[in-house]
Simulated assay, not measured.
Amino acid sequence: MIRLTRYEFVKIMTRKSIYLALTGLLMLLVLYAYLGHPGPMNGTSFYKPYEGAITAEKVQAAQEQLQNKGYSDEANQNRYGVFYEISLFSPEFIKNYTKTDDSGNVMERTVNVTEIHYNKPWGYLLEYIDQFGVLFMMIMILLGLAPVFAEEYALGTAALVRSSKRGKSQIVSAKLMASIVYIVLCVILFTSINLLIYWLRFGNLAGADTPIQSVGMYFQSFDYEYSPYRLSALQYYFVQLVTHLAGSLIFGCVVLWVSSLSSTAFVAIIINVAIVGVPYLAFDVMNFNPGWAKWIEEFSFSTMMRVTRLFQTPVNYSIFRVEVSYLQLYLLIMTVVTAVVVLGTYRAFRNREVFS
């Protein structure tokens, strides 16, 4: 079985399209990191005088600075970012500011940020998995796994493979295991390069022990401000990474299932692009947001790969009078979907040989 899995893994890794896409994606990753955010990025010196508890004196100084200088100059984001955060997390602002969820209910902060610390590198690391990491993994999974079964049909080798000594089920298992190894390697590669780039850009990874609620993505966007999870930036980074990997594996299983039903790799890629691309274009690009379609956005495959939405706010659902969190319900649905598509892949490859 190990030898068969190794053979299937080699078949995946010898596809030239993978390396062409990998080269292009890594170039985009580096160019965006250096050109999208030009100039020095280490703002430790700006935060150091204000680190620690948020006092009335710090709040007053922050408000004066923001009124005098503003916060629009990108070159001075680090300099004025500390003043913005002091004001945002000041007791007075938190007391007077309320935020509601989609149902109109007032959201409560599980964790109150009472201290200011520099943690900007983690904002960029988390942002990259949420944004570029999803694009990277989707393209690599589509190019690597869409041909796994469809190629056998297109080349006419499906019937020969199915009648071999290893039988139908063992071959499918080997393809699944090889695909899992491929996905894990892709996630490790992206994560390693992402860490290296931003360690070099910032010169440090400061603020790893600060609460996730205080980490700003895009400097002014504190996506986890109302997160119910008590995690540090480093702890959440690993949670995000594991969740991103799990989402990538689930999407990989879907791609394999579609491949087992498709006559060519091209058809499999088109169908899979539609599965993940249509919801993204509708909800994120075109702002299509009717109430009846909200569940599609909340439980799409890309949601788990992006991770952010799952840990952002304390959303709960009532299922047969049992209260479950959004994260629990999503994981339950994805577990069922994964079991269905894996079993469907075995069944499809056993029962179908020729595609017209």
Rank of each mutant, 00 (worst) to 15 (best):
A233H: 04
T98N: 10
M140E: 01
E92S: 11
G277R: 05
R321T: 10
F251R: 07
L231F: 15
I250C: 07
M137L: 15
Q170Y: 07
N76L: 11
E64V: 06
V337G: 07
V239C: 08
Y84L: 02
M41T: 00
L281H: 03
S300F: 00
F311W: 08
V254I: 15
A348G: 07
K168M: 10
I86E: 09
S179E: 14
M217N: 00
Q213I: 00
I296N: 08
Y47D: 02
G207C: 11
V187T: 08
L231R: 00
I250Q: 01
L142P: 03
G277N: 14
I12N: 05
L28R: 02
L234Y: 02
L331E: 03
A61E: 07
V285P: 04
V285I: 15
T243G: 06
L249R: 01
T338Y: 08
N287V: 05
Y34L: 04
Y80C: 10
S260E: 09
V134W: 00
Q63K: 15
I319G: 09
N289V: 05
F283V: 14
Y153E: 11
C186N: 08
R350F: 05
G70Q: 14
E225Y: 04
K69L: 13
M137N: 01
E353P: 03
T157L: 14
Y330S: 05
V187F: 03
Y226A: 07
V187Q: 01
Y34E: 04
N204E: 12
V161N: 03
T157D: 13
F349C: 06
G81L: 09
D102K: 13
T303F: 00
Q60L: 09
Q65C: 08
M138H: 04
M305C: 06
T157C: 06
L29I: 11
V340W: 09
L185A: 13
V148S: 06
W199I: 00
A154P: 01
V307D: 03
F9G: 11
F283W: 13
T157I: 14
R352E: 13
